[in-house]
Design a protein around this nucleic acid. Sequence first.
DNA 1: TATAAAAATGTAATCGATTTCATTATTAAC
DNA 2: GTTAATAATGAAATCGATTACATTTTTATA
Lengths: 329, 329
Amino acid sequence: MANIQQVAKQAGVSVATVSRVLNGQNSVSAKTKMRVEEAIKKLNYEPSLLGRNLRTSESRLLLILIPTISNPFYLEIIKGIEQVAISQNYNILLCETDSNPNKENIYFDLIRKKMADGIITMDPAVNVETLKKLAENFSIIQCSEYEECSGIPYVTIDNEEASYRAVKHLIQIGHHNIALMNADEKYLFARQRKMGYKRALEENGITLRNEYIISTPNLGFENGQHAMKKILNLQDRPTAVFAVSDLLAIGALKEINAAGLHVPNDIAVVGFDKIDFSNMTNPTLTTIAQPMRKMGNVAARMLIEKIKGEEVESILLDHELVIRESTSR
Amino acid sequence: MANIQQVAKQAGVSVATVSRVLNGQNSVSAKTKMRVEEAIKKLNYEPSLLGRNLRTSESRLLLILIPTISNPFYLEIIKGIEQVAISQNYNILLCETDSNPNKENIYFDLIRKKMADGIITMDPAVNVETLKKLAENFSIIQCSEYEECSGIPYVTIDNEEASYRAVKHLIQIGHHNIALMNADEKYLFARQRKMGYKRALEENGITLRNEYIISTPNLGFENGQHAMKKILNLQDRPTAVFAVSDLLAIGALKEINAAGLHVPNDIAVVGFDKIDFSNMTNPTLTTIAQPMRKMGNVAARMLIEKIKGEEVESILLDHELVIRESTSR
DNA sequence: TATAAAAATGTAATCGATTTCATTATTAAC
DNA sequence: GTTAATAATGAAATCGATTACATTTTTATA
């Protein structure tokens, strides 16, 4: 495990010259460059990033905060982030917060202690104040879910509009009794999607029924099952369900099946996200496709710009309604 | 952004003393300790890990190499690793290799350049020689999949036995024509599971039929669909399928359904891994449960021991057959 | 060939912590 | 009240790179 000093000695030059070769500066003569490269090869030298990072005051590490690693929705975003990060010589540290402020704090500490250069958070509902304060001194980008008045740049989709389209689709194929399986309204996206749902109903002269709106604490499969159970027990059973996450929708699918009912004949189902599994269910799931890969790309690009000290603006990306078996007979 | 010098100045002590307070050494008098702590608070000081890491020659970062982030099988292992890592003050860098040597090399470089203290790899089939050489100088543990004669410690399950049990279960419920949906035999686990399959057949006097063994390049959902298509086209269609991964099995389920056949009445299906989704399908999937969480825990513990310079031994963990709807009528 | 300009190289400071060793302050023992 | 032992503190080296600035070498120009 040689260091730069030993390489310099071996090549008969100063450490500065070795460093110049290492960083591809062209103020080194071809001859010395050769000598240095030979020394590097001979000693099997690899420059330590610990030394470099201290000197340059950067870690080239980006933090990604997600509530849970179990929702495939995030995975595709992560891939998108990584793609850009790697190409710009950054690496990513994946941080599962479990929406737990304590766990989140462990990762916040990493940026406070200079072990990370920036944060992409997909879980800003926790610890908003800390996040805001942190954003004053460090580079932070919000991805998918965001805090409205935090002043922290974000990339996301138009949730209200997406939700509106999903519900409108159900109405167009003839449904009037449409349930909304929503997330906890502490999440902005939940509030937005509810608005879209309402707008679609209103525009089509359908009266909103509060008992048709069910809220779940999380976006997991089991939550979908549980919520669906409640829906199936309603007096006037809805003929369609719009779930704000594919996992919820898949849980609903399962529960409807278990009740001996048929999708979409008895109950139509629409999900949200277009995770890979939404195509593996039986029937396949109609859903709103989010441009997850692109969202990741954009978030990473924004963050890196922010780290460089540039101004960045928030961005809304497009979404798409993907009609599949769960809404077509 | 204060540094240790400024804190020392503010508190009227030397940097050594500040460092001692920081690291909780008890050779500091209560009075000075107070003064230092006040200075820290006043200056809002956070010690830089860049400086510390250079001095201590460690990064406290662990690399986790996985072929793809899309298979939930790995996610639970990762959680297990993280649990132990965090508790020991390590952080993990998740590295998706796509089984691509070039991508793998990017991450290998991270350890060569001291930016990581160790590696847990779940994808040793790529770049075996490089891995072996790396293991001479750095701490590496293999998890789940491993290279037999590499001399690198591993934690995994008894794949042959697990496979044997799965197939035996199918035989016990009356099946004789059992297909094996296997992975590419370049993977050790694929070879081992094939052996278990063979042993179960032999012990029960069932003749092995080569056309019943289908091999897929990857463990994805689509591979399962594709392989199942082939199986359904066989002259003498098997009445049961054992797939070496839940994703494959879920793909198979889908395909069987699409063909208008019923699981398990027409064809029984057994998967492998017990990923969360194996319980969300319809019917739910009989599968071999791997102790993923524990495997992650153990791998992390082994790696940290190895980093400390201790000797570590390879470990085999228990597995379990979970019987669900796809094999019970 | 002498001199100025440009290119190549070296010296030493620097990043921000930890830690060894030396020194000073405190306590204990007689 | 000494002296020895112990506790507390500080000075300075160190980890391994980068880089500003100084110096030397080379090239270009007249």
